[in-house]
Design a protein around this nucleic acid. Sequence first.
DNA 1: TAGTGGTCTAGACCACGAG
DNA 2: TCGTGGTCTAGACCACTAT
Lengths: 238, 238
Amino acid sequence: MHRQPMYRVINEDLAAQIQGGVFSSGDQLPNEHDLAKQYGVSRMTVRQALNLLEEDGLVARRHGIGTFVSEKSRRGRRLNRLRSFSEELGSAPDNITSDVVRAELVYPPKDVAEALELASDDSVSRLTRVRRVNKEPAALQDAWIPYSVAPGIVREPLIDNSLYRTLAERHGVALRWADQSMTASLLGKEEARSLGIEPGGAVLHGLRTTYSTENRPVEYTRGWTLPEFPLLLRIEAE
Amino acid sequence: MHRQPMYRVINEDLAAQIQGGVFSSGDQLPNEHDLAKQYGVSRMTVRQALNLLEEDGLVARRHGIGTFVSEKSRRGRRLNRLRSFSEELGSAPDNITSDVVRAELVYPPKDVAEALELASDDSVSRLTRVRRVNKEPAALQDAWIPYSVAPGIVREPLIDNSLYRTLAERHGVALRWADQSMTASLLGKEEARSLGIEPGGAVLHGLRTTYSTENRPVEYTRGWTLPEFPLLLRIEAE
DNA sequence: TAGTGGTCTAGACCACGAG
DNA sequence: TCGTGGTCTAGACCACTAT
């Protein structure tokens, strides 16, 4: 019956209406009671949909007042939900390209083995990509995936340049959550060569371990992002 | 009756039990039905509490299996919820100190005026602090608060070294959410002098605009964090 | 099959903010 | 006062996973 849960359908419908200009910045949405009637669901279900919109920064709720469309967010990588690089950027995907600079089957170095809970003689797929926005290098991403999770992923091109889409659609791996750390570092020689820029500049250095719905680590990525492409985050109060 | 909503009471009780070792890493929590009976609430209310624990990375749910305590998180600043610096670090507050290096009433530069929606002749409180962990400099935070939001905040010491606690308890300002950007940069001379370290190193550079429950910007902070103190983030799937 | 979390109902009352 | 979002009930059925 519900291929997708109703709250997700409603969330996507309202998000599309906001992105499509049916509601503009500052507009008030219909109240929760009316939305429930309109979609033929209970108010609790509407609230689940609105919670997602709020976490994504698309709407802001005001107790006693109403729910309002937020100002159009600045360009940037929104990290609030687990998304592909291009979805994070929110740009037209035309401007975003991906060059695979390495795709091979190897044994994991220590940090990778630890993050992915592997032995040192377990095979791992390593996929290194340069992401560009309008042809300018934006980030280097060095992803490691246990061989058993996605056999052959290094042998075929990714679906739509998206590792996450490929894991989901070709290998049936559903992602659930990720632990990400971020710090600053100076760009090393090897990474600079891959990016085609000078080494020594400040870059955002991220480490991400992504877990499947079975809570097994399925991807570990080291990323270096140039400072022109800041990460954005919406943080809620407790 | 409910000074705090029940789901928050349950959330804090379970969090305390996990932090206090009643449940250890990998332990399974009682199922939702039993928790509901135990706390005398409905299952939906228990689920609200568990959602918060999951977003904070304290537990992981597995559909059809159960809810389990996550591995003890590494030391680091968890950015998933709007918290004070010491709460983000999660360390014993003894190790964290705060030196106020600037506290004055000024007119806002352009970026501050824009973020806080002020005119160039509106007064702003500027509060610059060096945060240290075990006496080592960890971050420089340059906070700007509209004078009208918290008059006199530069004239008195902060409550418990916490800007957020002071805003809440002394000025009645309840924070709701923040937009944060993060990028990397090289530490400038002035910031290096405040931190007492050499300039030119890579640092995490953050900009945060914090909004009150009335969705008015009440704080804009520029932050420079040394790479030894990475930010951590739990990211959920869509 | 048994037990778990995921979704959803059809209400109720409370808390907040504007007029 | 009135309309809004915030919290909560007491169930129901579905989807998933292990056995």
